[in-house]
Simulated assay, not measured.
Amino acid sequence: MPMNPHYALTEPLRDAVDSLSARWPVLVEFGAPWCPHCINAQPLLEQAFEDRHEQVQHIKVEDGKGQALGRSFKVKLWPTLIFLRDGAEVARLVRPTNAEDIRTALRRVDGD
């Protein structure tokens, strides 16, 4: 699956994310469309996804105060990228500043 450029209209439930990550590698991106750090991370994500991670399910979640999914992952800063495989977190990047860190985490979650 290619990079997802759009935030989900509704926040998925934690059980749904855990269930999906038991079947597929998942990247959950927490942020907000107006956040400058999140905006700056988008070209880095695009570059990292050029490596063709077809199996990775990319879920973009607009986070905010009181949002249950972000709190369940203990998200404090945006963007936070959480890489899940087999129902477990395998990598986490907070405010990434280069595409190579994202590529490395994608390879880990994708099994490369």
Rank of each mutant, 00 (worst) to 15 (best):
M3I: 06
N4H: 03
P5R: 04
H6F: 15
Y7I: 09
Y7G: 07
T10C: 01
P12K: 11
P12D: 13
P12G: 06
P12N: 10
L13Y: 11
R14Q: 14
A16N: 01
V17E: 02
V17L: 07
V17D: 01
V17G: 03
D18R: 05
L20F: 10
A22Y: 04
R23I: 09
R23Y: 12
P25L: 03
V28Y: 00
V28S: 05
F30P: 01
G31P: 01
P33N: 08
P33C: 04
W34G: 06
C35M: 00
P36C: 01
H37V: 03
I39C: 10
N40I: 08
Q42A: 14
E46C: 09
Q47Y: 06
Q47G: 10
Q47S: 14
Q47T: 13
F49G: 02
F49A: 11
F49L: 02
H53V: 13
E54P: 08
V56T: 11
Q57V: 03
Q57C: 06
Q57H: 12
H58L: 01
H58W: 05
I59M: 06
I59T: 08
I59A: 00
K60R: 12
K60W: 06
K60F: 11
V61F: 05
V61T: 01
V61W: 06
V61A: 05
E62W: 05
E62N: 15
G64W: 04
K65M: 15
K65W: 15
A68F: 07
A68M: 14
L69C: 07
L69T: 03
L69H: 03
L69S: 05
G70L: 04
R71F: 12
S72H: 04
S72M: 09
F73Q: 03
F73R: 07
V75W: 00
K76L: 14
L77N: 10
W78A: 00
W78M: 12
W78Y: 14
T80S: 10
L81Y: 07
I82W: 05
L84V: 00
R85D: 04
D86C: 08
D86A: 09
D86P: 01
G87P: 14
A88E: 15
E89P: 11
E89M: 07
V90G: 07
A91E: 01
L93E: 03
R95H: 11
R95T: 04
R95F: 01
N98K: 11
N98L: 09
A99M: 03
D101M: 10
D101H: 05
R103G: 03
T104G: 05
T104D: 11
A105R: 04
R107N: 07
R107H: 09
V109N: 07
